[in-house]
Structure formats: structure tokens, C-alpha cells
Write a protein that binds this DNA or RNA. Structure first.
Lengths: 263, 263
DNA sequence: CATGGTATATTGGTCTTACCACTTGCACAA
DNA sequence: TTGTGCAAGTGGTAAGACCAATATACCATG
């Protein structure tokens, strides 16, 4: 018998044809079978060859279109986008489940500390005010209902990035925070919400805000780094099983990209 | 009469219903009208209310599903994902057209230089070899056919990120390079491919590779920064109209996020 | 009363057929 | 040779039907 917790159950999702089709086509693009600018067979053809009807094929193509892999031209056909092959690489590395919490925190520390320093240089009055708003929001929140997934937490970091004045850095911050939505990350953070940590974190936020107010770029950088280091330490204390502190900077070996280059 | 070049034509794309529907729903999610975990009306309802048939509605929902905004549960309904509201923010900041080339280069300089330093610490032999492969690929390429959008250029930077050992940083690099696909960026780079710059860039790549080989973290960081600074300078030389060199660090004011926080 | 099976309405998934609007290429006419 | 216009092919949408999974209430059983 298994203990309830340990029972090796894997939740099964009903197969959806459009995903399978999209996977197949994406694989062909990644492998180079479908080169840039090449035209896919017509929807009717694909449907017939795959043994399905048109709607699932259309849905697959729309999914690929949203991911930026193909370009649908009405009346003409569906074409592989120029950069599709390299984007397939992005598609792979986005597999959220494979990005661990420590990797994520390390990446955030490196990226967001730089951003904070830039924000101290470039923040406008309005932007500083917007940041302060998020600090107050957490401070005044009912302590009972609070958890670490408070929207204002993310918003603080996003607004700091906005204060850097660089839209690409805002995007970086948003993408990093999107990674936190993986089921693994969420389960971890359930065991990771303490009042002490909350207060400490928001104190960090306030310190960073003050450094930005004083135009203290180096200070903002360091405070952001310390803030995230504290979170990393706290997390490794609560969840030490998998973590090896020495590897926090570089926890997991990434697999080499599979794309080939003519050499 | 207009000269052909100056004629104020705006290329029109055929309206596609599924996009409009997706936009509407995404807006409602972003504004909070559709809270987390709330259930959308059934496809049949939506179709009727919007005055369209089911297929476009389904396509819109699939688009939102791919973007991670909603969760489709077969037999039950379509639900707004927990983190959908904040992801809508990512959706906005991804509007490629609004991210300028100088912003992008500045962001890459800050992020990728840090990554290069980490790669010098953590790269495995195989990873170093994989990086060297991309350098050779460009060096041996037929000079005529070369342009700055060579796949190996991106691959070099991606593999450096992989050598950092942090998957999240690989993702960052990929996302940054995906931004280069915007039509604006592509048009710029058409006027931006010179042999001198190509050779110089690949020389930079080789220098960075050597620094990584020597485990010279600070050196790799600096070389990557200089590499991208050179590109920025070159670009501002070729396309000085819009650029103000003093603002390279912080070129454009980002608009504040629209999400509201209770204060 | 608690448990587990069952019937049914609802929902998303897929199929089929048809028609429309647009693009493309080619034949044909000027 | 040049330009016009037609026709085939393509993606976009509509309508209706059926299938499969879900949710709920109800019922049989212990």
C-alpha cells in the first residue's frame, strides 16, 4: 500500500488533437524539415493527410501563429516564419517545469539587481510614486489574508523595471515572474509564507525604494541583490533536500541546444 | 500627387474575428472584470452573444490558452488562470514594435554581460566546444552570403547562456533575441551589414570564448559588454536620426503599468 | 446515514458541408 | 509587350450534428 501522499498518480489530460498537430509541425520546423519561408500544405491537405477534419488543423495553425512560428496569409497559405527555427528554441526553454526555483531566483538576482541600479538613475517622480504605492499596499494589507503571491509583490518589481526606462527590461522582469506560475514553484511557496519573511521582504522593498529616491544606483543594486539572496537563503532553509548552497549560483547543467550549424 | 515613397499608405491586414475576440477577453481579464478562477460563458453562449459562430470563438480561446491566460477543462468550461491578470502585463510589454533597437541592445548588454561572466565560471568542456562551433561556423562562412542575421550569431549567445548553467538565463537570452524579429529591427539591420563589422563581431565572439576558456569571469563580462557597446555605437553611426547617444542607457520612458493596487 | 453507482443536462472536441473573401497565376485581349 | 480579367485555390466563417468528458442530482445499497 501507498501512503496517500506517496501514491504515484499522474493526472491525465484528455488528448487534444490540435496540440498533437502543433507539436508535429513545430518539430518539423525545429529540425529544419520545414525551412524558413516554405509553405505548408493547405489546411484541407493537412486535414486529409492527418486523417482529421479542418477545425483541429486550423486550431493548431493558430496556436503556432500565436507562438510566432508561422505566418498565415489569407487566400495564399501558411508560411514558416524566418526566425521560426530559433524561436523553437525559446519554445523549448520555456518548458516551465524544468526551471527550478533556485535557478529562477539566481537569474532574478542577477537581472533585477542591475535593473534596480538603472532605475535609481532614471526613475521619474511619477514612477517613484508608483513604486511606493506597491510598498504601501503590502504594508496596509490585512496580515491574515497575505501570502507571498501578493500581486503587489510582482508589481513592485515590475514598476522598478519600468523606472529603468527600458521596455525590454520590463519584459525581462515579466517573463521571469511568469515562470513562478509553474506548479512546482507554487507548491513550494505554500510552505514558504511566514509573517517574519513577509515583513522583512517588504522592508527590503522600502529600502530599495529609498535608494532609488536618493539616486543611489549602487545602493539600489546591492539592496536588490541582498533582498533576493535573503529569499534564496530562506527557501534553502525550508527546502534543503534538493538544494546544495554551493551551487546556488549555477545549480543545474543546461542541456546544449540541439540546433545544428554547418561547420 | 504623392511620390510613391511618401504616399501615406498603411498596410491593412484582413480582420480576423478570433483575434478581436481574444483581445476583448484579454482586456476583461487585465482589467479585473474577469477575476481569477472565474468561468467564462460557454462557447455557444459567447458565439451567440458576439454574433459569430463557434469556430472563431474556439480559436480565440485556444489563442488565450497558448498565451497562458485561460485554462480549458473539457466537459466543464473555460476558466481564467490564477496568474492571468499579471500575465496580461507581459502580453502588453511584448508588443514588439514598441521596443526600440537601442533599448534592446542596452538590455542585452546588461543581461548578457552578466551571463558571460557566469559562463566563464561554470562552462563544461562540451559547452565550450559548442560555443567554439558557432564561432567557426561564422568564420568559415562564404563572405558573400553572410548577413548579420546569421543563425550562428544568435546561437553563439544562446550557447554562452547555456554554459552559465542557468536555464532561466537561457530563456532570457532567447526572449531578447526573439525581439529582433520585429519589422523595424529587421529593416534597420538591412542597412547595417558590413564586412568590417562582421569580422569585428566574430573577433569579439572569439575573445569572449577565450575568456571563458581561461575561466576569466570578469574578462568575459567586460568583453561581452564591449562587444555590444560596439554594436550600439555602430548602429548609432548608421542610424543617427533618432538616437541620442547620451540616452543609450535609458532611451525611452516606459509607461506605468495600468494594473491597480488597493492602497 | 454514508457510500457508491447511475441518469441526465451541460460543456468542450470533432466532424461535415457549404459559402464567402481574398490571393495568385495564367490565358487572353489590346 | 502590356494589361485586363477570369478561374482555381486558399484561408475565414457559418450552421448543424454528434461524440466524449464532466458535473449534478438522484437513487440503490450497505
Amino acid at each position: 500500500m501507498f501512503a496517500l501522499e506517496a501514491m504515484p498518480l499522474t493526472l491525465l489530460a484528455p488528448r487534444r488533437i490540435y496540440r498533437e498537430i502543433a507539436e508535429q509541425i513545430a518539430a518539423m520546423i525545429a529540425s529544419g524539415e520545414l525551412g524558413p519561408n516554405s509553405r505548408l500544405p493547405s489546411e484541407r491537405d493537412l486535414a486529409q493527410r492527418l486523417g482529421v477534419s479542418r477545425p483541429p488543423v486550423r486550431e493548431a495553425l493558430i496556436a503556432l501563429e500565436v507562438e510566432g512560428l508561422v505566418d498565415v496569409r489569407v487566400g495564399s497559405g501558411v508560411y514558416v516564419r524566418q526566425e521560426a527555427a530559433s524561436r523553437a528554441s525559446t519554445r523549448r526553454s520555456r518548458k516551465i517545469a524544468e526551471i527550478g526555483p533556485f535557478e529562477l531566483l539566481a537569474a532574478r538576482r542577477m537581472v533585477e539587481s542591475t535593473i534596480a541600479g538603472l532605475a535609481a538613475k532614471n526613475a521619474t517622480r511619477e514612477q517613484i510614486k508608483a513604486i511606493a504605492e506597491t510598498v504601501d499596499a503590502i504594508r496596509n494589507e490585512d496580515a491574515q489574508r497575505y501570502d507571498l503571491r501578493h500581486p503587489a509583490d510582482r508589481l513592485f518589481h515590475v514598476r522598478v523595471a519600468e523606472a529603468s526606462g527600458n521596455t525590454a527590461l520590463v519584459l525581462m522582469t515579466n517573463v521571469l515572474w511568469d515562470l513562478r506560475d509553474g506548479s512546482l514553484h507554487r507548491r513550494i511557496e505554500e510552505h514558504f509564507s511566514t509573517h517574519a519573511l513577509r515583513d522583512r521582504s517588504n522592508q527590503d522593498h522600502e529600502d530599495i525604494l529609498n535608494a532609488i529616491r536618493k539616486r543611489d544606483s549602487a545602493g539600489a543594486t546591492n539592496l536588490m541583490r541582498k533582498h533576493l539572496l535573503r529569499v534564496e537563503r530562506e527557501l534553502s532553509r525550508v527546502w534543503p533536500a534538493i538544494t546544495d548552497p554551493a551551487r546556488v549560483e549555477a545549480p543545474v547543467r543546461a542541456k546544449p541546444a540541439k540546433a545544428r550549424v554547418r561547420v
